[in-house]
Amino acid sequence: MTTRIKELDGAPSVLAGYGRAFASALPLVSSLPLPVSLPGGGSGELPDLELRVPSLKTDLTHLADYAKVCGFTLRDTLPATYLNVRAFPVHIALMTDGDFPFGPVGLVHLRNAIRHVRPVSVREELSLRVWVTGLDPHPKGRTLTLHTEAAAADGEVVWSAESTMLKLGGGSGERVERGADPDVPASVTWTVPGDQGRRYATVSGDRNPIHLYGLTAKPFGFPRAIAHGLWTKARAVAALEARLPDAFTVDVEFRKPVLLPTRVSFGSSTDAQGVTAFAVTDARKGSAHLVGSVTPAKKQRTSRRTTTANGGTTA
């Protein structure tokens, strides 16, 4: 089977995608003979489809809003997690494609791993490639992995990410014990306000109702709105940003949802190999919401060498 490649012109509309996504989540609607194709049809297999965005430019106002919501310093380079939100509409477009076996609503985000190859300037024009792999067995259902690659103008992949999502139901396979919470002392407490989900929604475009209000979250089984996992990750990476090398991977596992409003703790520790483990935990109970690690790339880029006034170089 050959991969179907679809090029998106400009940023796909998240709302249109979500419209279809929610339509498919309602049993009545999905059974109606509608002229548009809805996700959840098809063969039950993941489509061999790759979506591409040939030109992705950074809107500084959006970047600044994102940086503010997540706690990043507004820099000349993109925050490591920023392309997550730029890729989001493409993810939605992929998952609301007619061939997709189920809609995005109700998917549980398990893991997000980012490979940060080099700092990306805010002025760079990138291209995005998004595809999906899976479905893999999971005790509670099946998992799929969304792959995103961002390439620079010369084709060099400068950033990539894998998001693993769980489709509940029809679980199979061994029940795997969750790894122990990493031993990182909590050093910082963040107060996360009740509207944090809505604030992140405005910069991510992800208006999933579970993040917005208690009322909208309840139908999906949450007593209150929950923070977006990618926000929690972004907030954690922002806390580490001054210590991040130019090239690294940052891998997080989402454990318990962050029910809003709340106070959470953050802590990190770096081992002899330079790997930084970090965790976001419940400030009262100490149980983990998110655990992750930053691993410097093996062939780390040396610091930029720059010419000084005498024409010589400094390390």
């Binding site: 106002t61 310093t73 930029r304 720059t306």
Partner: peptide, 17 residues
């Protein structure tokens, strides 16, 4: 969109590197 801290960080980080 940049704050004082953003800009000073940029100037300082550039000097650092």
């Amino acid at each position: 969109a940049a704050s004082n801290q953003d800009m000073l960080t940029a100037a300082l980080d550039g000097l650092v590197s």
